[in-house]
Computed example of a mutant assay.
Amino acid sequence: METITWIYALLSLLFVLIVFKFSAKSGQRKFPPSPAAALPLLGHLHLLKFPLHRTCYNLSQKLGPIFSLRLGSRLVVVISSPATAEECFTKNDVVLANRPRFLIGKYIGYNYTTVVGSSYGDHWRNLRRLTTVEIFSSARLNTFRSIREDEVKRMLEKLGGNSLGDFARVELRPLFTELTFNNIMRMVAGKRYFGEENDEAERFRGLIKEAFSYGGASNPVDFFPVLRWIDYKNFEKNLTKLSGKLDDFLQGLIDEHRSNKNTNTMIDHLLSFQESDPESYTDVIIKGIILVLFNLII
Protein backbone atom coordinates (compact mmCIF):
# COMPACT_ATOMS: atom_id res chain seq x y z
CA MET A 1 0.00 0.00 0.00
CA GLU A 2 2.83 2.35 0.87
CA THR A 3 4.50 1.64 -2.50
CA ILE A 4 1.32 2.56 -4.38
CA THR A 5 1.07 5.81 -2.41
CA TRP A 6 4.62 6.73 -3.40
CA ILE A 7 3.89 5.96 -7.06
CA TYR A 8 0.83 8.23 -7.05
CA ALA A 9 2.81 10.96 -5.32
CA LEU A 10 5.61 10.79 -7.90
CA LEU A 11 3.13 10.82 -10.78
CA SER A 12 1.38 13.86 -9.30
CA LEU A 13 4.71 15.66 -8.94
CA LEU A 14 5.61 14.75 -12.52
CA PHE A 15 2.29 16.10 -13.74
CA VAL A 16 2.85 19.43 -11.98
CA LEU A 17 6.39 19.73 -13.36
CA ILE A 18 5.27 19.04 -16.93
CA VAL A 19 2.44 21.54 -16.76
CA PHE A 20 4.81 24.13 -15.32
CA LYS A 21 7.35 23.41 -18.05
CA PHE A 22 4.78 23.85 -20.81
CA SER A 23 3.41 27.03 -19.22
CA ALA A 24 6.90 28.52 -18.87
CA LYS A 25 7.76 27.76 -22.49
CA SER A 26 4.49 29.22 -23.73
CA GLY A 27 5.26 32.46 -21.92
CA GLN A 28 8.74 32.73 -23.45
CA ARG A 29 7.93 31.94 -27.07
CA LYS A 30 5.30 33.05 -29.49
CA PHE A 31 3.78 30.08 -31.27
CA PRO A 32 1.32 29.99 -34.15
CA PRO A 33 -2.33 29.79 -33.04
CA SER A 34 -3.53 26.45 -31.73
CA PRO A 35 -6.85 24.90 -30.71
CA ALA A 36 -7.95 25.84 -27.22
CA ALA A 37 -8.94 22.30 -26.32
CA ALA A 38 -5.51 21.12 -25.14
CA LEU A 39 -5.54 18.46 -22.43
CA PRO A 40 -2.86 18.07 -19.73
CA LEU A 41 -0.11 15.70 -20.91
CA LEU A 42 -2.03 14.69 -24.06
CA GLY A 43 -2.13 18.14 -25.61
CA HIS A 44 -4.17 18.00 -28.82
CA LEU A 45 -3.81 14.29 -29.50
CA HIS A 46 -7.50 13.73 -28.83
CA LEU A 47 -8.36 16.02 -31.77
CA LEU A 48 -6.53 13.90 -34.33
CA LYS A 49 -8.85 11.70 -36.35
CA PHE A 50 -8.24 9.75 -39.54
CA PRO A 51 -7.74 10.67 -42.26
CA LEU A 52 -5.26 13.16 -40.77
CA HIS A 53 -5.19 15.45 -43.79
CA ARG A 54 -8.93 16.08 -43.32
CA THR A 55 -8.41 16.92 -39.67
CA CYS A 56 -5.62 19.35 -40.53
CA TYR A 57 -7.73 20.93 -43.26
CA ASN A 58 -10.66 21.49 -40.88
CA LEU A 59 -8.36 23.03 -38.28
CA SER A 60 -6.77 25.32 -40.89
CA GLN A 61 -10.22 26.67 -41.76
CA LYS A 62 -10.56 27.83 -38.16
CA LEU A 63 -6.97 28.76 -37.26
CA GLY A 64 -5.46 29.86 -40.56
CA PRO A 65 -2.79 28.42 -42.88
CA ILE A 66 -0.22 28.13 -40.07
CA PHE A 67 -1.14 26.62 -36.72
CA SER A 68 0.48 24.59 -33.96
CA LEU A 69 -0.47 21.43 -32.13
CA ARG A 70 0.90 19.99 -28.92
CA LEU A 71 1.23 16.22 -29.33
CA GLY A 72 2.26 14.96 -25.94
CA SER A 73 5.66 16.52 -25.23
CA ARG A 74 6.24 17.59 -28.84
CA LEU A 75 5.23 20.76 -30.60
CA VAL A 76 4.07 20.36 -34.22
CA VAL A 77 3.56 23.25 -36.63
CA VAL A 78 1.19 22.53 -39.52
CA ILE A 79 1.45 24.53 -42.75
CA SER A 80 -1.26 24.36 -45.40
CA SER A 81 -0.24 27.35 -47.51
CA PRO A 82 1.75 26.43 -50.66
CA ALA A 83 3.61 29.73 -50.60
CA THR A 84 4.64 29.28 -46.96
CA ALA A 85 5.63 25.67 -47.56
CA GLU A 86 7.87 26.80 -50.42
CA GLU A 87 9.45 29.38 -48.14
CA CYS A 88 10.19 26.66 -45.57
CA PHE A 89 12.21 24.73 -48.15
CA THR A 90 14.03 27.77 -49.56
CA LYS A 91 14.46 30.83 -47.36
CA ASN A 92 14.22 28.94 -44.05
CA ASP A 93 15.53 25.54 -45.11
CA VAL A 94 18.50 25.62 -42.72
CA VAL A 95 16.32 26.55 -39.75
CA LEU A 96 13.97 23.66 -40.49
CA ALA A 97 16.63 21.17 -41.62
CA ASN A 98 16.68 18.96 -38.51
CA ARG A 99 14.25 16.12 -37.96
CA PRO A 100 12.67 15.16 -34.62
CA ARG A 101 14.82 12.74 -32.66
CA PHE A 102 12.70 9.64 -32.33
CA LEU A 103 14.15 6.60 -30.55
CA ILE A 104 14.32 4.64 -33.79
CA GLY A 105 16.99 7.10 -34.96
CA LYS A 106 19.09 6.32 -31.89
CA TYR A 107 18.97 2.55 -32.19
CA ILE A 108 18.40 1.88 -35.88
CA GLY A 109 20.04 5.04 -37.21
CA TYR A 110 23.40 4.54 -35.44
CA ASN A 111 22.75 7.22 -32.84
CA TYR A 112 21.43 9.81 -35.33
CA THR A 113 24.46 9.62 -37.63
CA THR A 114 22.74 8.72 -40.92
CA VAL A 115 21.89 11.36 -43.51
CA VAL A 116 18.21 10.97 -42.57
CA GLY A 117 18.61 11.49 -38.85
CA SER A 118 21.78 13.51 -38.26
CA SER A 119 21.67 17.18 -37.30
CA TYR A 120 22.46 19.81 -39.89
CA GLY A 121 26.20 20.47 -39.96
CA ASP A 122 29.50 19.29 -41.45
CA HIS A 123 28.74 15.60 -40.91
CA TRP A 124 25.35 15.88 -42.61
CA ARG A 125 26.81 17.88 -45.52
CA ASN A 126 29.51 15.25 -46.07
CA LEU A 127 26.91 12.48 -46.07
CA ARG A 128 24.70 14.41 -48.46
CA ARG A 129 27.61 14.94 -50.86
CA LEU A 130 28.55 11.27 -50.62
CA THR A 131 25.04 9.97 -51.32
CA THR A 132 24.37 12.52 -54.06
CA VAL A 133 27.56 11.79 -55.99
CA GLU A 134 28.27 8.14 -55.25
CA ILE A 135 24.79 6.65 -54.76
CA PHE A 136 22.04 8.67 -56.42
CA SER A 137 23.87 10.26 -59.36
CA SER A 138 22.61 9.44 -62.86
CA ALA A 139 25.95 7.88 -63.79
CA ARG A 140 25.92 5.55 -60.77
CA LEU A 141 22.29 4.51 -61.22
CA ASN A 142 22.80 3.88 -64.93
CA THR A 143 25.39 1.22 -64.13
CA PHE A 144 22.56 -0.81 -62.56
CA ARG A 145 20.09 -0.39 -65.40
CA SER A 146 20.29 -4.06 -66.36
CA ILE A 147 19.21 -5.03 -62.82
CA ARG A 148 16.10 -2.86 -63.00
CA GLU A 149 15.21 -4.21 -66.42
CA ASP A 150 15.63 -7.80 -65.23
CA GLU A 151 13.46 -7.26 -62.14
CA VAL A 152 10.69 -5.65 -64.20
CA LYS A 153 10.86 -8.60 -66.60
CA ARG A 154 10.57 -11.06 -63.70
CA MET A 155 7.51 -9.24 -62.36
CA LEU A 156 5.80 -9.21 -65.76
CA GLU A 157 6.49 -12.92 -66.17
CA LYS A 158 4.92 -13.58 -62.78
CA LEU A 159 1.87 -11.53 -63.74
CA GLY A 160 1.62 -13.41 -67.02
CA GLY A 161 1.84 -16.74 -65.26
CA ASN A 162 -0.97 -15.81 -62.86
CA SER A 163 -3.38 -15.08 -65.70
CA LEU A 164 -2.19 -17.68 -68.19
CA GLY A 165 -5.43 -19.64 -68.28
CA ASP A 166 -7.96 -16.86 -67.66
CA PHE A 167 -8.40 -13.45 -66.09
CA ALA A 168 -7.12 -13.34 -62.51
CA ARG A 169 -7.35 -10.90 -59.63
CA VAL A 170 -3.85 -9.71 -58.68
CA GLU A 171 -2.74 -7.75 -55.61
CA LEU A 172 -0.10 -5.33 -56.86
CA ARG A 173 1.26 -4.06 -53.54
CA PRO A 174 3.35 -7.18 -52.68
CA LEU A 175 4.59 -7.37 -56.28
CA PHE A 176 5.81 -3.77 -56.21
CA THR A 177 7.34 -4.31 -52.76
CA GLU A 178 9.22 -7.34 -54.07
CA LEU A 179 10.30 -5.42 -57.17
CA THR A 180 11.58 -2.44 -55.17
CA PHE A 181 13.45 -4.39 -52.51
CA ASN A 182 15.07 -6.73 -55.01
CA ASN A 183 16.11 -3.77 -57.14
CA ILE A 184 17.76 -2.06 -54.19
CA MET A 185 19.39 -5.15 -52.69
CA ARG A 186 20.81 -6.30 -56.01
CA MET A 187 22.33 -2.85 -56.47
CA VAL A 188 23.58 -2.78 -52.87
CA ALA A 189 24.74 -6.36 -52.37
CA GLY A 190 24.07 -8.27 -55.61
CA LYS A 191 21.41 -10.47 -54.00
CA ARG A 192 17.67 -11.09 -54.29
CA TYR A 193 15.79 -11.60 -51.02
CA PHE A 194 12.14 -11.56 -52.12
CA GLY A 195 10.85 -14.47 -54.15
CA GLU A 196 13.80 -16.56 -52.93
CA GLU A 197 13.59 -19.38 -50.39
CA ASN A 198 16.75 -19.69 -48.32
CA ASP A 199 17.80 -18.91 -44.75
CA GLU A 200 19.44 -15.58 -45.57
CA ALA A 201 16.45 -14.34 -47.57
CA GLU A 202 14.06 -15.40 -44.81
CA ARG A 203 16.20 -13.64 -42.22
CA PHE A 204 16.25 -10.44 -44.28
CA ARG A 205 12.48 -10.44 -44.81
CA GLY A 206 11.94 -10.94 -41.09
CA LEU A 207 14.19 -7.99 -40.23
CA ILE A 208 12.45 -5.73 -42.74
CA LYS A 209 9.01 -6.69 -41.45
CA GLU A 210 10.09 -5.91 -37.89
CA ALA A 211 11.66 -2.61 -38.93
CA PHE A 212 8.41 -1.64 -40.66
CA SER A 213 6.58 -1.96 -37.35
CA TYR A 214 8.78 0.74 -35.80
CA GLY A 215 8.65 3.15 -38.73
CA GLY A 216 6.70 6.40 -38.88
CA ALA A 217 5.73 8.58 -35.94
CA SER A 218 3.24 6.39 -34.09
CA ASN A 219 5.26 5.22 -31.09
CA PRO A 220 3.87 6.60 -27.80
CA VAL A 221 7.30 6.63 -26.15
CA ASP A 222 8.45 9.34 -28.57
CA PHE A 223 5.63 11.63 -27.42
CA PHE A 224 5.52 10.71 -23.75
CA PRO A 225 9.12 10.40 -22.46
CA VAL A 226 7.86 9.30 -19.05
CA LEU A 227 6.99 5.95 -20.64
CA ARG A 228 10.71 5.25 -21.05
CA TRP A 229 10.97 4.94 -17.27
CA ILE A 230 8.88 1.78 -17.38
CA ASP A 231 9.95 0.75 -20.89
CA TYR A 232 6.37 0.80 -22.13
CA LYS A 233 5.54 -2.50 -23.91
CA ASN A 234 9.29 -3.30 -23.88
CA PHE A 235 9.63 -0.76 -26.68
CA GLU A 236 13.24 0.20 -26.06
CA LYS A 237 14.30 -3.34 -25.18
CA ASN A 238 12.85 -4.71 -28.43
CA LEU A 239 14.30 -1.84 -30.43
CA THR A 240 17.74 -2.59 -28.97
CA LYS A 241 17.44 -6.23 -30.05
CA LEU A 242 16.33 -5.25 -33.55
CA SER A 243 19.24 -2.81 -33.80
CA GLY A 244 21.70 -5.57 -32.98
CA LYS A 245 20.18 -8.00 -35.48
CA LEU A 246 20.16 -5.40 -38.27
CA ASP A 247 23.74 -4.38 -37.54
CA ASP A 248 24.90 -8.01 -37.59
CA PHE A 249 23.18 -8.58 -40.93
CA LEU A 250 24.62 -5.44 -42.55
CA GLN A 251 28.09 -6.06 -41.13
CA GLY A 252 27.94 -9.58 -42.56
CA LEU A 253 27.24 -8.15 -46.03
CA ILE A 254 30.17 -5.74 -45.75
CA ASP A 255 32.57 -8.42 -44.49
CA GLU A 256 31.49 -10.73 -47.30
CA HIS A 257 32.17 -8.10 -49.95
CA ARG A 258 35.44 -7.10 -48.31
CA SER A 259 36.62 -10.68 -48.76
CA ASN A 260 35.26 -11.08 -52.32
CA LYS A 261 36.23 -8.03 -54.39
CA ASN A 262 34.95 -9.27 -57.75
CA THR A 263 31.44 -7.81 -57.80
CA ASN A 264 30.16 -4.42 -58.91
CA THR A 265 27.79 -3.35 -56.15
CA MET A 266 27.33 -0.22 -54.08
CA ILE A 267 29.04 -1.90 -51.13
CA ASP A 268 32.09 -2.70 -53.27
CA HIS A 269 32.11 0.85 -54.62
CA LEU A 270 32.08 2.36 -51.11
CA LEU A 271 34.67 -0.11 -49.83
CA SER A 272 37.03 1.00 -52.60
CA PHE A 273 36.89 4.53 -51.14
CA GLN A 274 37.42 3.15 -47.64
CA GLU A 275 40.91 1.99 -48.59
CA SER A 276 42.06 5.53 -49.38
CA ASP A 277 39.91 7.42 -46.85
CA PRO A 278 39.01 5.08 -43.96
CA GLU A 279 37.81 7.91 -41.67
CA SER A 280 35.16 9.16 -44.12
CA TYR A 281 34.02 5.71 -45.27
CA THR A 282 33.79 3.70 -42.08
CA ASP A 283 31.70 0.55 -41.85
CA VAL A 284 29.13 2.49 -39.81
CA ILE A 285 28.82 5.10 -42.56
CA ILE A 286 28.33 2.38 -45.19
CA LYS A 287 25.74 0.58 -43.05
CA GLY A 288 23.96 3.87 -42.48
CA ILE A 289 23.76 4.50 -46.23
CA ILE A 290 22.21 1.05 -46.76
CA LEU A 291 19.64 1.84 -44.08
CA VAL A 292 18.79 5.10 -45.84
CA LEU A 293 18.01 3.11 -48.98
CA PHE A 294 15.69 0.91 -46.87
CA ASN A 295 14.13 4.07 -45.48
CA LEU A 296 13.07 5.13 -48.97
CA ILE A 297 10.72 2.13 -48.93
CA ILE A 298 9.80 1.97 -45.25
Rank of each mutant, 00 (worst) to 15 (best):
L69R: 11
R70D: 08
R70F: 05
R70W: 14
S73Y: 03
L75P: 01
V76R: 06
V76D: 05
V77F: 02
V78M: 12
I79D: 05
I79Y: 00
S81H: 13
P82Y: 08
A83R: 14
A83G: 03
A83F: 04
A85G: 13
E86F: 10
C88G: 03
C88T: 13
N92Y: 13
V94P: 00
V95G: 01
V95F: 09
L96C: 11
A97I: 09
A97P: 05
N98D: 15
N98T: 10
R99P: 04
F102P: 01
F102N: 00
L103C: 07
I108V: 11
I108M: 11
G109S: 12
G109D: 11
N111S: 14
N111Q: 10
Y112A: 06
Y112M: 08
T114G: 10
V115M: 14
V115R: 04
V116R: 05
V116Y: 03
V116W: 02
G117M: 09
S118K: 08
S119M: 11
Y120N: 12
H123Y: 15
W124D: 11
W124T: 12
W124R: 10
R125S: 09
R128P: 03
L130M: 14
E134V: 10
I135P: 05
I135W: 07
I135L: 15
F136W: 03
F136V: 09
S138C: 09
R140G: 04
L141M: 15
L141P: 09
L141A: 12
F144C: 04
F144T: 00
R145Y: 02
S146K: 14
I147W: 03
D150N: 10
E151G: 05
R154D: 13
M155A: 10
L156H: 06
L156Y: 08
L156W: 02
E157H: 14
E157I: 04
E157W: 06
L159H: 01
S163Y: 08
G165W: 04
G165E: 07
D166M: 12
F167P: 04
R169G: 02
R169E: 12
V170Q: 07
E171K: 06
P174Q: 14
T177E: 13
E178H: 07
L179R: 03
F181P: 02
V188D: 01
A189K: 02
G190W: 02
G190T: 14
G190C: 11
K191G: 00
R192G: 06
Y193T: 11
F194T: 04
G195I: 02
G195A: 09
E196T: 09
E196P: 00
N198I: 10
D199Q: 07
E200Q: 13
E200P: 00
A201V: 02
A201C: 06
R203N: 04
K209R: 13
K209D: 13
A211E: 01
